[in-house]
Amino acid sequence: MSRIRDFIEEQFLIEFDETFPESSDLFKEGVMDSFGYIQLIRFLEKEYGIKFSEKEMTGGVMVSLTQIEAAVAEKVSQRGTASA
C-alpha cells in the first residue's frame, strides 16, 4: 500500500507525518479536490486491477489515506475471491 501513499504525496505535494496523519480528511484539509479524486481513482484502478462503482466513489468513504488503503485492500480481496 506504500504505492498509494507515494502517489498521494507526489501528486498532491504533501507529506504524511505526525502533523498530518494518514487519517486526515484530504478534502477538508484542502489537499484534494474532485479532479484530484478522479485522478486517484484512475491510478488505483490501473495499479491494482480493480474497478470502483459510482456509488463507491461518491459515498464519501475514501477521504483519508487510511480509508483509501482499506477500500483498495477490500476490492483486491474481493477480486481474489471472485477469481478463485
Rank of each mutant, 00 (worst) to 15 (best):
Thr19Leu: 09
Leu13Asn: 10
Asp33Tyr: 05
Thr19Met: 07
Pro21Gly: 02
Phe43Asn: 10
Ile4Val: 12
Leu13Met: 02
Ala73Pro: 02
Lys75Pro: 14
Ile68Arg: 04
Ser23Ile: 01
Phe43Trp: 10
Ser64Lys: 11
Leu65Gln: 03
Gly80Ser: 11
Met1Pro: 03
Leu13Lys: 13
Gln78Gly: 12
Ala71Asp: 05
Glu56Cys: 02
Ala70Asp: 00
Glu54Ala: 15
Ala70Phe: 00
Val63Gly: 09
Leu65Cys: 02
Lys46Asn: 14
Ala73Asp: 03
Gln11Val: 01
Met57Gln: 13
Glu74Leu: 12
Leu40His: 01
Asp6Gly: 01
Phe7Trp: 10
Arg3Asn: 05
Gln11His: 09
Arg5Leu: 00
Val61Met: 04
Val76Cys: 06
Ala82Gln: 12
Asp17Leu: 08
Arg42Asn: 15
Leu40Ala: 02
Arg5Trp: 02
Glu47Ile: 08
Ser34Gly: 12
Thr81Cys: 03
Ile38Glu: 12
Ala70Cys: 00
Phe27His: 09
Met1Ser: 13
Phe20Ala: 00
Leu65Asn: 02
Phe43Pro: 05
Val31Gly: 06
Glu10Leu: 07
Met1Ile: 09
Met57Phe: 02
Gly59Val: 00
Glu29Gly: 10
Lys75Asn: 10
Gly60Gln: 09
Thr58Ile: 06
Ser64Asp: 07
Asp17Tyr: 06
Thr81Arg: 15
Thr58Leu: 06
Ala82Asp: 13
Glu22Asn: 12
Asp33Gly: 08
Val72Phe: 00
Lys28Arg: 15
Thr66Cys: 00
Leu44Phe: 10
Ile4Leu: 03
Tyr48Pro: 15
Ile50Asn: 13
Phe27Ser: 09
Ser77Tyr: 07
Arg79Cys: 00
Arg42Trp: 14
Glu15Ile: 03
Asp6Ser: 08
Thr66Trp: 08
Gly30Trp: 10
Met62Arg: 11
Ile14Arg: 13
Phe7Lys: 10
Ser53Glu: 07
Ser23Asn: 13
Ala84Trp: 10
Val72Cys: 00
Ser83Cys: 01
Met57Arg: 12
Phe35Thr: 14
Ile50Phe: 04
Glu45Gly: 11
Phe7Asp: 07
Thr19Cys: 04
Gln39Leu: 13
Met62Trp: 11
Leu13Phe: 02
Ile38His: 03
Leu13Ile: 05
Val72His: 01
Phe43Gly: 04
Glu74Pro: 06
Met32Ile: 15
Met32Glu: 00
Glu29Cys: 10
Glu15Phe: 03
Asp25Glu: 12
Phe35Met: 15
